[in-house]
Nucleic acid binder design. Structure first.
Lengths: 226, 226
DNA sequence: TCGTGTTCGTGATAGGCTCTAACTAAAGCT
DNA sequence: AGCTTTAGTTAGAGCCTATCACGAACACGA
């Protein structure tokens, strides 16, 4: 079966993929204790049972490994949010609340990964930066879809300053959501970003603030703002 | 004048302080291009005209240099905000708007420093973390004071979950501000954190969103929420 | 004015890191 | 079978942080 053997993953490729995965989990484990600077290819290699240079067969770069972790994390976050959106009731507000809570929970459960997202691998190359921004969109999209159910089918048509934004929405196949609502959602997104960021860094506890009430207000305000 | 010579800065100390400052500015310059990982003590030393090890006479550590930069940045931010608050009119809303805009402007003008604040030197030692949180409070305080004028002298007394927060407020000499308003302000703070963070990383431009309108909404919503 | 102790900067060095290069061993394909 | 591609090795270049021991410059009291 020539045709089959050509399309099949290939035994070798599967091994390769598995090693890659093993390396990544080792990297995550190391990331959890010590932050992104502490991530050492040598140490990772030792952990998966090989010497340093061998890793370069699997990842071209230290940075490329890191950005791959970032992209994975974005994907994981997106699927977590999407799962939270579909799990409970169909009540729009409840769904939104669930998504917000899932966002927070994910960040609290794996702060190191969340930090990884929030501040990318810290070098600021434009090329990577845009690819990372792209990777962040699916998660954003989940929120937008949940919000879509909240908003009445608007008649607003792109015009003026929102035209570019509408274009972005079209490009990401977000329809039936008025720009105003989408803008609002972006703000919600940014707000969560900020709240979680502060909470992870311990600002709230140091101020004696209970974060839960903040998130509740957040959702309430958002719904009201529509 | 034994008393005088004892209390005076001392010629040597002043030189020392000046070198420290020079090192820090060189560090900032290097930080602006390449991020915190690229900050190399060797390179800094070369830039100020000495060899690597000499820096250890002035800073015990690479990390200690970084955290000092963070603390400086917080101070700078706080004074910028405070200046913005006192510059214009006495109209409370206008003052708040000015502060918000100053916050954003500062972050946009020096993204690398803002990043430094937002995600501390990336190692996560608890001891430093709390000291950094402490350093962030003065800036927060400026916002709270501006808001204080906005809020009617409330009669709210700490009770229940807000008690700890009230304690924190007392400790920072924030009086005449009801807890509810202070909480609201904390949220505003977090929101700005989130908006600026996304804007700096280029998310808004990549989505075709004009950030200015977001900040305007932010202030408007905040005022309404009181 | 002359020791004398403190401070500043140096080169040398240890130990770590990323990443390249040359080489060996093994696996897959024909 | 033999040939080719791949996975892993060791060696090493060139960085880095950080420590150490030493010499030079300075401040200061006698």
């Amino acid at each position: 079966m020539a045709a089959e053997s050509r399309t099949e993953p290939g035994l070798r490729d599967r091994f390769r993929a598995q090693v890659r995965q093993e390396v990544k989990t080792a990297a995550l484990r190391q990331l959890a204790e010590g932050g992104p600077e502490a991530l050492s290819l040598n140490a990772i290699a030792k952990q998966v049972g090989m010497t340093g240079p061998a890793l370069y067969r699997y990842f071209t770069n230290r940075d490329s490994l890191l950005t791959e972790l970032v992209i994975d994390a974005y994907g994981d976050l997106a699927s977590t949010l999407s799962h939270a959106a579909d799990a409970g009731t169909t009540d729009p507000v409840a769904r939104l609340t669930a998504v917000v809570e899932a966002y927070r929970a994910w960040a609290l459960a794996e702060p190191h990964r969340y930090r990884l997202l929030f501040r990318a691998p810290l070098q600021g190359y434009d090329a990577q930066s845009t690819s990372l921004v792209e990777a962040s969109q699916p998660a954003m999209k989940v929120v937008l879809e949940v919000v879509g159910a909240l908003a009445k089918p608007g008649t607003a048509v792109a015009e003026g300053p929102a035209a570019q934004f509408r274009e972005w929405m079209n490009h990401h196949e977000i329809v039936d959501v008025p720009e105003a609502v989408a803008l609002r959602t972006t703000m919600l997104w940014a707000h969560l970003h900020g709240l979680v960021g502060l909470e992870i860094e311990g600002n709230f506890t140091s101020m004696g603030i209970d974060p839960v009430s903040l998130y509740e207000s957040e959702v309430k305000d958002f719904v009201r703002s529509l």
